[in-house]
Design a protein around this nucleic acid. Structure first.
Lengths: 108, 108
DNA sequence: CGCTAACGTTAGCATCTACTGACAGAATGC
DNA sequence: GCATTCTGTCAGTAGATGCTAACGTTAGCG
């Protein structure tokens, strides 16, 4: 499978990451342009520490990827991860249908 | 517009609602079958109070709809809301592209 | 009206979380 | 080597959140 970790765990991690407005803003910032941590932090009025922690959460959720270049760390959004999340949202219904079908099967 | 409240607010509300595992489970429960609050609560090992609060959060986010029938309250998932959320996730990139285009425009 | 069933609401509590400030580490320039 | 730049990590704190228990509310029945 393509899942090193259980699917719902990763989906949950992404949703928790996206639940925070500032993290959504960061994700939008690195959606098309790869940016360094400092550049990202400069866009907001919170400490670099806070932004760094947000970047860690986003990275662990799989929503962004990190690349090192000298002392800098460049971040970019991983659109594949978002597509996986969107598919998982569809799965709310397909899974439910699967369970409904299973119930029908039991009644036979 | 189709948005009584700002788009990002509603998207944020949905993401915050979905960030909680139990709320995702509840949403799956009412994805295909309309269910009463008591039925839903019976599926989990937490108090009905807790489930009621989760239902409130889901309802305020727009992810589920409520229908009253006697003393009972029936809930069902609103797939349109999920589709709106999925579209908003795509918007992370299209918005970024819009801003990129605007910057190009400024440089002229 | 009294009684019951099905819910929501409030208060209070334990835990999580986003934040700041101080410190630590790795790569580059002098 | 030493200083500088860019960044992550740790400790501590104020506020948000999910939970339980007790109380309020509405609809139906005798």
């Amino acid at each position: 499978m393509t899942s090193p970790a259980p699917l719902d765990d990763r989906v949950g991690a992404m949703l928790r990451a996206l639940a925070e407005p500032r993290r959504r803003a960061i994700l939008r910032l690195v959606a098309t342009t790869e940016r360094a941590a400092g550049e990202i932090a400069a866009e907001f009025e919170v400490s670099r520490t806070a932004v760094s922690q947000h970047l860690t959460v986003l990275k662990e959720s799989g929503l962004i990827a990190e690349r090192r270049e000298g002392t800098r760390r460049l971040y970019r959004a991983r659109r594949e991860a978002v597509r996986e999340l969107q598919a998982a949202l569809d799965g709310i219904w397909s899974d439910a249908l699967d369970r409904a079908r299973a119930l029908v099967e039991e009644e036979k």
